[in-house]
Write a protein that binds this DNA or RNA. Structure first.
Length: 196
DNA sequence: TACTCGATCGGA
DNA sequence: CCGATCGAGTAA
């Protein structure tokens, strides 16, 4: 399980990167449990971020983003796909991390379809199993080289400055396992530090 | 109340 | 490239 406190740091971009390799665990209505590693994320950080839903301030829809980190934000996109986000940051700082990919399902719409995630999970807790969808840190530190940063997808409406931010993080396939002969000492991702 | 436009995907 | 499909946000 992941500590809610960890998700309440005001460092959205670092958290998006940190979430790579963590496990998204789903308990389906029939009781079956499935865990999948997160392989792609995107950071959305505050009202200033013109790509973030909270750019319009606090509304019925964005209210959940102002909660303290550790709950889910699920919304319907294009009237077709449910999008799964993890709310992060301290209370009143509207930020979230979009779960764009898990092992075996790339693309945010496919993530939710694969795990039967709907808006019924909006505002549900992500750090305990009470809602049937939670995060687990099963260990295994990623070398920094396993992570690729790139611009966020589909946010041209945010204007050139915000659309260009490399706040999308992808886990390079295969690059997360320990190097053979294992003497390579690489800096691992850190949650603390400067974002932007 | 009318209109516009999506943090996408699958099929021409 | 295009259509699906619907709710949030905005203007009126």
């Amino acid at each position: 399980m992941v500590e809610a406190k960890t998700l309440q740091a005001r460092n959205t971009v670092a958290l998006a990167r940190w979430l790579l390799g963590k496990h998204l665990v789903r308990r389906f209505p029939d009781g079956r449990i499935e865990a999948r590693r997160i392989v792609e994320t995107e950071a959305y950080d505050g009202e200033r971020d013109l790509a973030c839903h909270a750019r319009v301030g606090r509304t019925a829809r964005t209210d959940v983003m102002y909660a303290a980190g550790g709950v889910w934000y699920v919304y319907l996109c294009y009237g077709v796909h449910e999008m799964l986000n993890l709310v992060v940051g301290p209370r009143d700082w509207p930020a979230a991390v979009l779960i764009r990919g898990i092992e075996g399902a790339g693309g945010p719409g496919r993530v939710t379809r694969a795990l039967a995630i709907t808006r019924a999970l909006n505002r549900a807790p992500a750090c305990d199993d009470s809602a049937g969808l939670w995060l687990e840190d099963r260990g295994g530190t990623l070398p920094r080289s396993a992570v690729v940063a790139s611009p966020r997808v589909g946010v041209d409406y945010a204007g050139p400055v915000w659309a260009a931010k490399r706040w999308r993080f992808t886990l390079r396939p295969g690059a997360d396992r320990a190097a053979p002969g294992g003497r390579r000492r690489e800096r691992s991702t850190r949650v603390a530090g400067r974002a932007g």
